[in-house]
Amino acid sequence: MWSDFFTVSVFVATLASGIRLATPFLLAALGEAVGQRSGVLNLGVEGVMLIGAFAAYFTKLKTESTVLAVLVALGVGAVMGLIYAFVTVIMQAAQGISGIGIYLFGLGFTDLLFQKQVGTPQPIPKLAKVEIPLLSDIPWIGEIFFQHNLLVYLAFLLVPVAWFMINKTTFGLNIRAVGETPEAADTLGVSVNLTRTFTIVIGNTMAGLAGAALALEVGIFQQNLTAGQGFIAIALVYFGAWRPVGVMSGALLFGIVSATVLTLKTLGIVEGAASSLLAMAPAILTIVVLVVVSRRIAAPAALTRPFDRAAS
């Protein structure tokens, strides 16, 4: 059994699977990281992912257009971002409880829409793989990295984009400033509320895209499709110490460990109670790393703190 596991083909398939599994986590966590760097916690990522997933699924079901499905998911994500920004930035509501509200809304709303508009689960064509010319032909490497659907490539391309935006642009400087000392940023002429509104919209749009990536990858929608992925994405932001590369590392680790567990089960290497225990491995590993990271790196100082210009 173990000899089957230690083969090149299994190794390659497991890593490729890990990358696919990591994609929704990565998209959602990248967006959430941007928001948290500006001081806004959004526990509603899961709900927005569900809304994005349903929007993409339903659009694809009715129009058969993948491009339109992704655009609609992005759009509803942005709208949810505007709503969340209104609640937490303009109205200065407590971020934690508002996020839970967004999650519950997404959970109930998508179930309602699915029951009323679709009913019985109807499959849609899965997102097609795009093999990158030349690169996909490289032995092992090609299958692991260059034979995925477009949203997988997009997710990983957004990592350097997010890094550049946060660290090398004026907007990124503003994000970091309002996330650490919003009062000082305000004194220097940075609009705290506008900056946070932008980051919230970015984060929710990414969450909508993450939902679309999930629905289009599995080719179906079902009640509670995301099954907690949005909450894991939030944990991965802490895991990655609010840095895009760290977030990507966390998503990949979670995805690859999950894929490895699946492979071990597929090959019958672990069975019964051991199999059940092993299924918890990704979550346990995440918690362990989370504890280590949280001891070393501090969160943005103004995280979860509403900004009130009059009071500052």
Binding site: G47, I83, V87, A93, I97, S98, I100, G101, I102, Y103, L104, F105, G106, L107, G108, F109, D111, L112
Partner: peptide, 10 residues
């Protein structure tokens, strides 16, 4: 419940 609770929370 989710719909109501979500809206109520927000």
């Amino acid at each position: 419940v989710a719909l109501v609770a979500g809206l109520a929370l927000v």
